[in-house]
Design a protein around this nucleic acid. Structure first.
Lengths: 255, 255
DNA sequence: CGGCCTGTTGATGCTTATCAATTCCTGTGG
DNA sequence: CCACAGGAATTGATAAGCATCAACAGGCCG
C-alpha cells in the first residue's frame, strides 16, 4: 500500500543508485543525479522537460517532525520525496492524530492544483524533498501533459492500494494488519530492515492500540517468523508464514 | 466518501434536472440532455470538446447485477454513471466479496489508461452508463487536457475521501460507521430516501456483520433518529444526532 | 545514577462476531 | 385474492478478540 517504486513505505532508504558515470545531456543540475529520477513522477518527462521543471523546483530538507503543510491551510506546494518519509495525517474528532498514509522516496504529496489541504503533511524522519509551488507546477503541467498522466496514473494506483488497505482495516484481524504492514516494510528484499515507525505510529496506522501491536510483534517473534534486534529494526525470517498470516497472496501485495 | 457531485453514494436518483429548454449549440445529441452533464467529468469540457467526446462514447444500460469489468481482466473501458449505482469490489482471500467503493451518478469508474483491473465493477441496480474505450478516451484526453485535470482532481478528492473512510474503518465503532453511511446516503436533502444497499451490502462496506448493522439500525430507530418504513427506504429525523453519533463535524462530511 | 520515554506483559471488561431461532417481506402460483 | 415458500432482516445467547487499565522492564540522556 505504500512507497518505493510505487510504494508508500518501502523504507529501504533507497540506497542511492549512483549511476555517476551516466550524465545525460540537457540535465546538468541536481536532477541528473537525483536518487529518485527513475521512480518519481519526473521520470515521465523528456530531458528537456526535466530541465524546465528543474527551474521551478527547489530542494528542501525537512527535519524530523517538521511540517510541510497544515490541515485546512491553503496547500500551495507539491513535493517529491527524495529520501526519508512523509506522513499524511489528520486530527480525529477526539483530538488524537490519525495517520492516513505515508510517502516514501519516489512518491509525491501535496495538491497539484492547490486548494485547501485536508490533512497535515510532515516528515517522520529527516526527509529530503523537491518542492514546487502548486501554481507554477500547474502551469508547467499545461505545457507538459505527460506529467499529468503520470500524476493521474499514480493517483489511480494509490486509490487501488488504499482500497486494499481498507479491506484489511475493515475485515482484518490485528495479526493480519500487523503482518501486512511488515510485509510492506520488508519489500522484496531480505535481511535486516529499519522500522521507520514507532509502535504507537504503527498502531495509529493499523487502527489498533500500542499494546495490541506489541503483542502481535512478540507473537511473531516467538513463532520465529521475525526478529526484532532493536526497537527500530526487524528481519523477516519466514516470509511465507508472514504472507500467510497477512492473508495476502503473492500476487496481491499491497504495492 | 461517495457519490453525488463528488460523492460516491448520494443515491438520490439525481432527479433529472430537465433543463429541456436550454439546448446549447454544438451539442445536439445525447449529451445535451444528459442528467449528469454538470457533475460528471464532462463538465470540464467546452461545448466543442463535448461534441468530440460524444463521438467516441456510447450509452449502455446495465441490468442489476451485471458486470462491466472483471478483476484481473484487461480494463478496456472507462464509464460515467448517469443513473443507478456501480459497485467496485474485490474477492477476498476467503472467497467473500468485499465492497471497495460505490460510484453514483456523475462519478466515473474504470481505468483511463488501460491496464489490468484490480477490482470488479458491477451494477448494483439498473444503471445507465456512458462508456468510452480506454484507448480512444486516452487519445481524446491528449487533445483535451482539461479532461485529465478533471480526472486528476476527482481522483485526488477521492483519495481524501477514502482516507477519511479509512479512519472510520480503523477507529470507528459500529455505531459511528453506520451513522456515517446514513449521513452520506441522506446527502444534504431531507425526507424519505431510498436505501440502495441491503443490510448485507452495508455490512460488507462498513466492515461489520449483517447482525451488527441490523442492531445499529434498530437502535437508531428506537432512539427516534431515523425511521425505516420499508427495508429499502429510510428517513433521517434528527440529522444533528446522527452527525454526533458519526463523530463527523458539519464541515468534515465525507463528501 | 536517576528520571523519562518507549515498549512489554498481565488482568479485566466491552464491543462485536458467531451461532441459532424467529419474524418479516416479496414474489409466485393456485 | 390468498396461501405458501424462500430469502432477508431481526432478535437472542454466547464467545472471541481487542481495548483499557495497570504494573513493570529496558534504553537513552542528562
Amino acid at each position: 500500500m505504500f512507497g518505493g517504486k510505487q510504494m508508500y513505505l518501502s523504507y529501504d532508504t533507497q540506497t542511492v543508485q549512483q549511476d555517476a558515470d551516466v550524465i545525460e545531456p540537457n540535465i546538468t543540475g541536481r536532477c541528473a543525479q537525483c536518487s529518485v529520477r527513475d521512480t518519481a513522477i519526473c521520470s515521465s518527462l523528456s530531458r528537456n522537460g526535466l530541465g524546465d521543471l528543474q527551474k521551478i523546483g527547489r530542494r528542501r530538507l525537512l527535519a524530523k517532525g517538521q511540517s510541510l503543510i497544515w490541515e485546512d491551510d491553503e496547500a500551495t506546494v507539491i513535493a517529491n520525496v527524495l529520501s526519508g518519509m512523509l506522513k499524511l495525517s489528520s486530527s480525529a474528532s477526539n483530538g488524537s492524530e490519525q495517520i492516513l498514509g505515508l510517502v516514501g522516496p519516489g512518491g509525491f504529496a501535496g495538491y497539484p492544483h492547490g486548494g485547501k489541504a485536508h490533512h497535515n503533511i510532515a516528515a517522520m524522519v529527516e526527509t529530503e524533498i523537491c518542492v514546487f509551488p502548486s501554481e507554477s507546477f500547474s502551469r508547467f503541467a499545461d505545457d507538459h501533459p505527460e506529467i499529468r498522466i503520470a500524476l493521474l496514473d499514480r493517483s489511480l494506483a494509490e486509490l487501488d492500494r488504499l482500497r486494499r488497505w481498507m479491506v484489511l482495516l475493515g475485515r482484518g484481524s490485528a495479526a493480519e494488519r500487523v503482518a501486512a504492514l511488515l510485509v510492506d516494510f520488508a519489500g522484496d528484499g531480505t535481511g535486516l530492515r529499519s522500522l521507520p515507525l514507532s509502535r504507537g505510529q504503527i498502531a495509529e496506522f493499523a487502527g489498533l492500540t500500542i499494546e495490541t501491536v506489541s503483542r502481535q510483534f512478540t507473537r511473531l517473534k516467538t513463532a520465529g517468523i521475525i526478529t526484532l534486534p532493536t526497537r527500530d529494526t526487524f528481519e523477516v525470517m519466514d516470509r511465507d508464514a508472514l504472507l500467510a498470516i497477512s492473508n495476502l497472496h503473492h500476487d496481491q501485495l499491497l504495492h
